[in-house]
Design a protein around this nucleic acid. Structure first.
Lengths: 225, 225
DNA sequence: TACAAACCGATATAAAGTTATCTATTTTTT
DNA sequence: AAAAAATAGATAACTTTATATCGGTTTGTA
């Protein structure tokens, strides 16, 4: 019973939760490890193991009860109330995120955007865009812990430092700058003040090309299995 | 000498390459495993191991030669010519990507966007936005292999199928729909036709919140180490 | 010239994560 | 009522990835 919840597993748990909520909306009551495995691209064994680690039992023949699963997952993932975030840098990507509707459905709410450029400031908008220098006060007052960083690369590190000083503890980094401690914070044991996750689009695309090439060349060597 | 290049390693190799190109631009000639480890958040030992696997030797006291490293990395990663991609779905996120300048510097070129909505079509733009039904012909003619998918969730699966049929072999998926085979294709041995990488922003943010909570609660139990 | 420090290289060890296998239980069917 | 089928649960083995250690070589310095 003393197994750890490791990072890939947490990601899977979040995925289970989503699928389960959709299934529930469709009127389903029970689900099998098989179904969930399909849905998120894992084997049934992984699903069962994950659930056993977080202390959920299914019925030997009847699968798992969706309601109970959802409750437990929400509990484990700590998703009681909506998660409030800010977007720092309201250029192309930043403003696209401001209008991203899916967040609401996922229990995430962008409470404000920040930018240095005068003509992007809109304090009265539904999601207000505020001057960058108001960020520290805002973060403190509203107790914001997580932010999306979508500024130009040149200013990424300096903005990063301001954010960390202001009290931001988690950042989703859309710049291609490797913010210090980024890699280390991918790991669980990281003691740094601020956890950074990188969304490195260029890197992902490169990687896709690499994998495709790899697959093609191995397809040549091993014709059909 | 017969060690494999595994997935996390490929990601690191791409990061090394970037850092090295920046260092070279700054006029550096040599670099230590130490420096590179710092830059991408890995230990020096990992860096040395990575290089030894791809067959690069440094000088016992003098570190590695940047030029040689860059050449070898480009070779291993297969990044000879610019990588041409398309963007499918030119809504908020899609059009933000169309204008994303960093791609060029990273050797990636968006050659076209595609959308169903009439008023987004701009065949004469610098990066043309074409009607979705022209996608298959375009992909075949231009031999496009990799695409970014940024359509609304509701149509994600159907568009996905069209793309795969058209010959797309790698997809960077910005929808929150788990496209079939998505998880399996994260792995190296995947034999599926199309490799999908998910950029799941909501999931990443959730995960950040989780890690922050985790860190806070473990900070309570283990005061200072 | 000799010694020490810096850094690479390789091997071995360990840790993490996934997959496979086997057993047990419940439901359904005959 | 009994047998078979389906599925959870647990454990063990295996694969992958990272770390740690030790030896060797070069360079710099006394």
């Amino acid at each position: 019973m003393e197994e750890k919840i490791h990072r890939p597993m947490v990601l899977r748990l979040a995925r289970y939760l989503r699928v389960l909520q959709k299934l529930k909306a469709l009127g389903f009551v029970k689900v099998f490890s098989n179904n969930l495995g399909d849905a998120i691209g894992a084997t049934p064994a992984v699903v069962r193991k994950d659930f056993s680690v977080i202390g959920i039992s299914g019925n030997k023949r009847g699968g798992y009860l969706i309601d109970a699963l959802i409750d437990r997952l929400i509990d484990v993932l700590g998703k009681k109330e909506t998660e409030r975030i800010i977007v720092v840098g309201c250029g192309r990507i930043g403003s696209a995120l401001l209008e991203y509707r899916e967040f609401i459905r996922e229990g995430i709410r962008i409470v404000a955007g920040f930018d240095v450029s005068r003509d992007r400031i809109e304090p009265e908008a539904q999601i207000p865009v505020l001057p960058a220098d108001e960020l520290p006060a805002f973060v403190a007052r509203e107790e914001i812990e997580v932010a999306v960083l979508a500024v130009p690369d040149q200013v990424a590190t300096s903005v990063f430092e301001v954010m960390v000083d202001a009290g931001i503890r988690g950042i989703l980094n859309f710049t291609s700058v490797e913010l210090k401690c980024a890699a280390a914070c991918d790991e669980e044991g990281c003691r740094q003040e601020c956890t950074v996750h990188n969304v490195n689009i260029g890197l992902e695309i490169e990687n896709l090309f690499y994998l495709i090439r790899l697959k093609r060349s191995s397809a040549l060597t091993e014709p059909v299995e």
